[in-house]
Design a protein around this nucleic acid. Sequence first.
DNA 1: AAGTGGTCTAGACCACCGC
DNA 2: CGGTGGTCTAGACCACTTC
Lengths: 242, 242
Amino acid sequence: MTKGVRMTHKYEIVATGVREIISQSLAPHDALPSERELMATYGVSRMTVRAAIAKLIDEGRVYNVHGSGTYVGSIDLFAKTPKLTSFTEDMTSRGYVASSRVLALSRMDADEDVAVRLGIPVATECTYLRRLRLADNNPMAIEDVYLPRAVLDIEHLHLDQSLYAQLAGSGHEVYRAEQEIQAITLSKEDSRLLAVPDGSAALRVERVSSSRHGQLIEFATTIYRADRYNFHIAVTRDHNEK
Amino acid sequence: MTKGVRMTHKYEIVATGVREIISQSLAPHDALPSERELMATYGVSRMTVRAAIAKLIDEGRVYNVHGSGTYVGSIDLFAKTPKLTSFTEDMTSRGYVASSRVLALSRMDADEDVAVRLGIPVATECTYLRRLRLADNNPMAIEDVYLPRAVLDIEHLHLDQSLYAQLAGSGHEVYRAEQEIQAITLSKEDSRLLAVPDGSAALRVERVSSSRHGQLIEFATTIYRADRYNFHIAVTRDHNEK
DNA sequence: AAGTGGTCTAGACCACCGC
DNA sequence: CGGTGGTCTAGACCACTTC
């Protein structure tokens, strides 16, 4: 299932068509056909064309200038809004092969720290998973994950498949997350696990994931090797009145 | 000028009204009035209501569920898409008073590193500005900025006003930026400037800013004290077909 | 079945850009 | 000035959730 591209919506058809035009015959900063031309080409209304273009803008592929036109984005500006990805997805997109080694898996009672972030009472039973994450068989990160036992119990946890896939299967689909990115100095133990000199700098990411409805699902911290990992994000300037 | 709230667009009126409803009488996960109710209340068409709600979603204030309704976002999930901000704006929003001390200001020829990032030939003349950035009079970051001389020459640089404001005034309004976030170990000199122990970890942000049309305007690196600064970003999961 | 948001039409006028 | 994107109307049907 989930196979093929579902062309159910007209704006998707238009967006796909425009993507092809761009990749086949346009260079960065070239103008797209106007919205009215696209209406005629695809036989759709203006709103549908604009929905398609809105999607392309969201993807970072094009930008538009009021009164002038819609243009292909610069290749230098390809990055789009950062998306929530699993470690495996992240590594794959960076060209690595991901694997992992389980360092700990247990039940535990939420301490103050975990409880606050998951919005649960202190001492609520949780599932705790600690893994060394590898990229091309070299240590890349150490990940600690805390899940309320009510969300996913150890007994139902299958380490051979994606955590997010399992959560989705049990009605706890992760939809968004808040991440906090810090720089830290590695502890002796973590340095050893990551195979870097004691006291090296590292990136530490705290993540609280929630469902579409705002239910808090997961609290995770990931410590990345600074020499192998960094974050790339694209931001835009607020151009609202105020 | 730029005073007051410009209620030029109907969807802004609706959005403002809904913001008030939320802050005055709704709690997280409470349902908003339906789109059809809002049409009647404000005497506008459905599309206008949806434009208003789209804006509120973008602001992270509400979320909607197909077939069910539109709901107030969780207070835990307040953070919106990160925006490109100046150091001063960033510090103000974090509750600090920003100031800075100029460490260097000169013309320089672009080296390989700068040239590649600004998309200009090596040795192109640039304006270079190095500042120690303070928050509540304590060192927070060290910022190095490189601008092609054609974009902003030293002679026209006024250190008493915002760099972005000056760029905007001369037709180089910064619209978006790509940022790369890394963890580094501080050099001896930088440790001293930031008033932290030698060899401390720090966050290093590389930023390439561009205009709405994709013209590269600025290359900047900012080194933040790890003990005083971190990044907070909200991400959503890709739920597209594929 | 009723109510919700998601998509879509076929128009319209406005604000802005470039010639 | 003509062409572009930005906003807006007054409808319509569809997909989904809830009861």
